[in-house]
Structures are given as structure tokens and as C-alpha cells.
Amino acid sequence: MMKIAVVDGQGGGIGKHIVEKLRRELPENVEFLALGTNALATSIMLRAGANEGATGEGAVAYNAARVDIITGPVSILFPHGMLGELTPRMAEALASSPARKFLIPLNRSGIEMVGLKSEPLPHLIDELVRRIKDYLENLEDA
């Protein structure tokens, strides 16, 4: 069974949209784990269709190595990202996880991602879903 961790913080809105779209587009046997930097983010992603949820530094650090795919905004890899909600331990666990990472390049962190076009969030989420679907299909063909 494929397990996808959706990581988000603050209000959980990005994670909510990712979970909703992936839930509609991927097979039923894909399991979604909502990893929130706070309880509100986790709750919002659970209501959007995640199978399980966990909150905080310990939960993110523990589960990062136990999933097949990690997704969320690129700021999940930056210590003190998301206005400080993303701890250095969380960033390290997510970045060092062997899971394949599909991240949305939002420029809210003051870091410029050169070579990327600025797109509205819904377009970025559509592209994220397409790439995860392609990745899973290629795994099945291998």
C-alpha cells in the first residue's frame, strides 16, 4: 500500500487542497497521512479526506521515514519555515527521508526559486497531482 504524507502548517489550507485533489485522482488503496505543524492544520487535512493525522515535531520526525511520498509547500524543508512553525528537527527529518518529495514552490519564505514560473496555487496543485499520478503509474509499469 502506498502511503503519502501531506505536510502543512498555519491554517492547513494548502494541505487541504492537496489532500482533496489527490483523494479524487488516486486509487482507493493509497493512504494519506496528514502531518500538521499544529492541530488546526492536521484537523483541516483530516476533514479533507486524510486517513490518519498526527501533529507536531515528534509526529513529523517519526513519520517522515515511514511514508513513500512527502508533499506540501517547499517551506517544509526550511528550518523555521511557515512563520517559525517548522522546527529544524522537522525540516531535517523531512529532507533526509528516503521518501520521494513533491513540493509546491511558494515564494513566501523570502527565498527565490530561480527557473520557476510564478503560477496561481490551484495550477501548482494540479501540476503536483499530475506528477504524483505519473510517478505512481511508472512504479506500476516497472
Rank of each mutant, 00 (worst) to 15 (best):
K16D: 15
V19A: 10
I14R: 08
K117Y: 13
F32Q: 10
P105C: 02
A41L: 09
G72Y: 08
V114M: 04
R47G: 11
K133T: 14
R108V: 13
E31S: 13
G81Y: 02
A64S: 15
E119S: 12
N107K: 14
S97T: 08
L106N: 03
R108Q: 10
G72V: 01
D8S: 12
M113A: 11
I70C: 04
G84P: 01
N51R: 05
D126P: 03
D126I: 03
N107S: 13
A91M: 08
A5M: 00
Y135E: 12
L136K: 00
L46H: 05
I4Q: 00
E28Y: 08
L116C: 14
A93Q: 01
T87F: 00
I18Y: 04
M1Q: 00
G115E: 07
I76E: 10
L86D: 07
Y62E: 05
K101S: 05
V114Y: 12
G84W: 03
M113N: 01
V6C: 07
I18D: 12
L86P: 00
L35H: 02
L40N: 02
E112W: 11
P98Y: 06
T71D: 07
G56N: 01
L124C: 12
I111W: 06
L103G: 05
A64L: 02
P27F: 00
G11K: 07
I125D: 10
P73K: 04
P120T: 13
L121F: 00
Y62S: 11
P120H: 12
H17D: 12
Y62K: 14
R89M: 14
R23Q: 02
P73C: 13
V74D: 04
L124V: 05
M45S: 00
L116E: 09
V7F: 04
N38M: 02
A39H: 05
N107T: 15
R131S: 14
G15Q: 08
I111D: 02
N38H: 09
L77A: 13
I70V: 07
T37N: 04
L94W: 08
V129P: 01
P79F: 08
V74E: 07
S75K: 01
A95G: 08
P105S: 02
E20S: 14
I4E: 08
S118Q: 14
G56V: 10
I70R: 01
E20A: 11
V6M: 12
I44A: 08
R130S: 14
G58D: 13
L128G: 09
P73D: 11
N29D: 15
A91Y: 09
G81T: 03
D141S: 15
K117D: 15
D141L: 15
H17S: 10
G36W: 13
N63T: 03
E28P: 10
V67W: 08
I132S: 06
G110C: 06
Q10N: 01
G11E: 00
L40G: 04
L94I: 15
A48G: 10
